[in-house]
Design a binder for these strands. Structure first.
Lengths: 198, 198, 198, 198
DNA sequence: GATGAATGAGTTTTCATTCAT
DNA sequence: GATGAATGAAAACTCATTCAT
């Protein structure tokens, strides 16, 4: 019997992330996940009810981590809204650049999962978005952010932009330098493309 | 449920868009596409080599149309870069809001297709992006757009934002008014979120 | 492509009866049913939704046939209750001795199916029993049958006896001569139920 | 849900009877048996070689007990054949009504086991039947039972009737009163077999 | 003896694709 | 070109059984 140093539940999750990122969820075989995890196919089902539950767990972990981080950020009194906004972007940035594979899986499967499985999809995603909105709304109150902007539209827009960018980085990571990416994203979000002289 | 235009090739494509949008490409059955198109399953294979070719054709059509439109726009002499930029956004906006089903399919399957099938994926997508870059670069030369911005990063970012927004509109179309959406997108792209007094 | 003279739906059913009788429903593989039927496994699912539906169809056919036959018998005016009772026994007898395999399947799987699947189980079984009760009750009215007997108990008892006997015949058919079996069953049944004045 | 008698071997057997009766042998999981017995799955295999052996043990116990009881009955000199016959029916009746779960398991699985596993099946069943035959044959010699009846046919018939009735009682026990059932069965049996001079 | 995590062979079912008509 | 019955490879999932602890 094979003895792994690690924890099987985690091994399986990491293997699934890798395999799903490489082949896409629907084209990934459970047998491949088992092989990469170094366990039998049966063991997959000891830890996860089925294939979809593994995918849902990947999302749960990511969005919970981001949610928890953002929750702390939101409640800090020592930062002004712009600083919070920048920190938020850093946080998301770090979360997705930490693992390219996770970034790819999130980018590829979020829609399928979110809209095809509304009940099962992690609550943390929506909560995370709400926290992001709060930061923006705080900034609107102090008028550092434009109060005429629709927050919901803004959040979708920037999250989508973010996601696209990170995925492209994850797939073709030689194309972008991360530091430049991070800097550009912050700049776009705040200033747009117009060349305003200030 | 039957979509009947008289032309089988088109009927099949429209049926596929509808079915793929509803169920997702991987969960859609060819037999369902045939049923909706009002043809036999055998006929599907008279007009398309296989399931994936139908999906590729959907993308080909969308991106070719956008590319062709943008090509004309780029070469107009009567518009300044900002006007061209606005027109470009309108064009993309119209393309995706014309058919919610197409918008959903594009949003859901672009990654799978683009990265899982690099050879077969339509050349018009990349060409379309290049044309968009040209408009931005023109604006940079005349310094109405910020020349320090990385064009590639910018294009991914805004396209991603766009996509996310449109998909959410397509899925939950009661949430957003299209006119407001269009106006907000233009505004974000150009001005960002900061409340600059000008 | 194999061309069978017969009808595939019937071929599959006959094959299933044979295989289920030999191995028992739960130990029978669909691949074996397909092989015996001379079709591919896929074809099984063209004609039947799943394995259980095949089993249910076997029961449906048997009990419907018996029900339909008994319905005609019940309504005949030219026979007295004893004659009807004898004819009923002949009818059941013929139905089960016609195909040993069917007899075995019925004997082995009726309980599982009937109590494990109350909604899906054929209505004809219960209707058939009701018709049998009517014949007995008619005989009770004219007092050729003992009116103190509980008809429901009687019907279960004799049907169970019948079933057991036929199954044993089907499995070990050298042990019993059919004619003797038939004669004995009639004798038991009537001498048990007849209201003999002593 | 836990059945705890202190003796693991017995706990497991009782749990298996309960689970097999509820779900049917083939649909019952060993893990469920272990859970109900309040032991680990591993312990199941300490006391029984495999799943089938548990089932066989259930049958062994029932038929051995009936055999042993009938053996004593057969050899009594103080009872005439009719009294022995009545006592036999009471004995069988008591055995099966004592535990509804056992009755259901016997009814559902006897055929599978008996014919699918002729070597492993308990010898006591056949011995029990032989003893029953002896009682009937004794009665035939003294001509209280009809000597023209085939004893083997008779035994199958009445045992089958019995089984069917008891199972229906076990599944739907509100339908029949046990005392009435017992009385009816005795009546059917005797009035079918008695050699009445008319 | 007791445990229960791990196994992996085994089975049903699905569905894109084919091809004889 | 049009059909749709037939195919069969593929894959998710199950669960009795084992065995290191």
């Amino acid at each position: 019997m094979r003895i792994k140093e690690g924890n099987k539940e985690t091994d399986i999750l990491l293997a699934a992330i890798k395999v799903f990122a490489e082949t896409g969820y629907h084209n990934s075989k459970m047998s491949k996940v088992a092989e990469v995890a170094g366990v039998s196919t049966g063991s997959l089902y000891v830890y996860y009810k089925n294939k979809e539950q593994i995918l849902l767990k990947i999302f749960e972990d990511v969005w919970k981590k981001l949610h928890d981080g953002l929750l702390i950020l939101v409640e800090r009194n020592d930062l002004n809204p712009i600083e919070k906004f920048d920190s938020m972007i850093d946080m998301i940035f770090d979360a997705f650049t930490e693992s390219q594979a996770v970034a790819i899986v999130i980018a590829n499967e979020q829609h399928h999962l979110q809209f095809g499985n509304p009940e099962g999809f992690t609550e943390y995603f929506e909560k995370f978005l709400k926290l992001g909105e709060r930061i923006v709304e705080e900034g609107m109150k102090t008028e550092v952010f434009n109060p005429n902007v629709d927050v919901k539209i803004f959040r979708h827009f920037y999250l989508g932009g973010f996601r696209e960018l990170i995925t492209n980085w994850a797939v073709n990571n030689e194309d972008f330098k991360l530091s430049k990416l991070r800097q550009n994203i912050k700049f776009f979000a705040k200033n747009g493309i117009l060349n305003i002289k200030r």
